[in-house]
């Protein structure tokens, strides 16, 4: 009996190691991404694998991992073997670059700030908009429950937060103190902070908590598609933020695994007409001018501020979301 058990144990361990070894084969890519890109990359991966096989004759499997953008960056820093990262905002890839896994100037390696598609932040409300939510200032009213994820772990939540901040700055003639007060008031109306955008969407659409969801535009459209336009509707605020989710090859990983060529081709494919079309179909705003105009009717023409207004992502992260930053100050005070 003991021998048999030991054999079993050994067999199990061997299988475990084999599983690890198999993951190292050349034509497997791991794309570590943020929360709402699941459906988009499922479709994109299929198209790219087909193209790659047609061009090189080699089969390709693209593995996916999804979660809050900050959490995903943390996993890559801790050793998750991502060939490619496609995260929600620049700072999360900066954080990975700080550990030396890729060069610090990664964002200038690909066109458009390495962001092949963009998005923005909109509101998702229940059909008929029972609370009459039109703009950011409706979110701070007493009795309105706002659903947004945790800016510490989620990229979308950080865009949400900065969009609210930009609105408050504009409404108060650039008064930082007033903006801080406004965002603090808004956070008081948040009953639950999920760790990622998808968790927040499920909280709002499935568990039916809250009156309004601050969501990625693509995530909001996906909810309409999943649950039907008879249950929810999208409200576009007077001002929002241009969200640029960047992509990058993780140099140290692809060089070790020997996957640089396919990883770079993968990212290039995002910029091609076919890749852009898949992005647009999944409600991301395409960069390619001809596609942008073709899909223009789908995306609201809203005034967008950019991250440059905050001095870039490093500055914004440092000021608002670092330990003891503005978010920590106002969030703790609000509780």
């Amino acid at each position: 009996m003991s021998l048999r058990r030991l054999t079993l144990l050994a067999a199990g361990l061997t299988m475990a190691w084999l599983g690890v070894a198999a993951a190292d084969s050349k034509d497997t890519l791991l794309n570590v991404s943020y929360d709402p890109t699941r459906e988009f990359y499922v479709e994109f991966n299929k198209a790219f694998a087909k193209k790659w096989e047609a061009e090189t004759g080699r089969a390709l499997t693209v593995r996916q991992s999804h979660g809050g953008s900050g959490k995903q960056a943390r996993s890559v820093i801790d050793g998750l073997d991502a060939d490619i990262v496609t995260l929600a905002l620049g700072y999360d890839i900066d954080a990975i670059a700080d550990t030396g896994l890729l060069p610090k100037d990664w964002q200038s390696r690909l066109p458009n700030n390495s962001s092949p598609y963009t998005s923005t932040i909109v509101f998702l409300v229940k059909k008929g908009n029972p609370k009459g939510i039109k703009d950011w200032n409706d979110l701070v009213k007493p009795g309105v429950q706002v659903i947004t994820p945790n800016p510490k772990t989620s990229g979308g939540a950080r865009w949400n937060y900065l969009a609210a901040w930009a609105y408050a700055l504009q409404a108060n003639g650039g008064d930082e103190g007033k903006a801080k007060e406004f965002v603090a008031q808004l956070l008081k109306n948040v009953p639950v902070l999920d760790s990622g955008a998808r968790g927040a969407t499920v909280t709002f659409t499935q568990r039916e908590i809250g009156d309004v969801l601050l969501a990625w535009e693509n995530e909001a459209y996906l909810s309409l598609q999943e649950f039907g336009a008879d249950k929810f509707e999208i409200v576009v605020p007077s001002l929002s933020i241009l969200a640029e989710p960047p992509v990058a090859v993780v140099d140290k990983v692809v060089d070790r695994k020997g996957t640089r060529k396919v990883a770079e081709a993968y990212l290039q494919f995002l910029y091609t007409r076919e890749g852009q079309e898949i992005a647009a179909k999944n409600f991301y705003r395409p960069r390619l001018p001809e596609l942008a105009s073709q899909y223009a009717g789908r995306f609201a023409d809203v005034k967008l501020v950019t991250i440059d207004q905050f001095g870039g992502w490093r500055a914004a992260q440092e000021k608002h979301f670092s330990d003891g930053g503005v978010f920590d100050q106002i969030f703790q005070k609000g509780r």
Binding site: A16, W17, G19, V20, A23, S75, D78, G79, L80, D81
Partner: peptide, 13 residues
């Protein structure tokens, strides 16, 4: 472990 080519977390072990 990375230098040895062994992956523990984010893998089966």
């Amino acid at each position: 472990l990375r230098d040895m080519g062994v992956q523990i977390i984010f893998a089966v072990p």
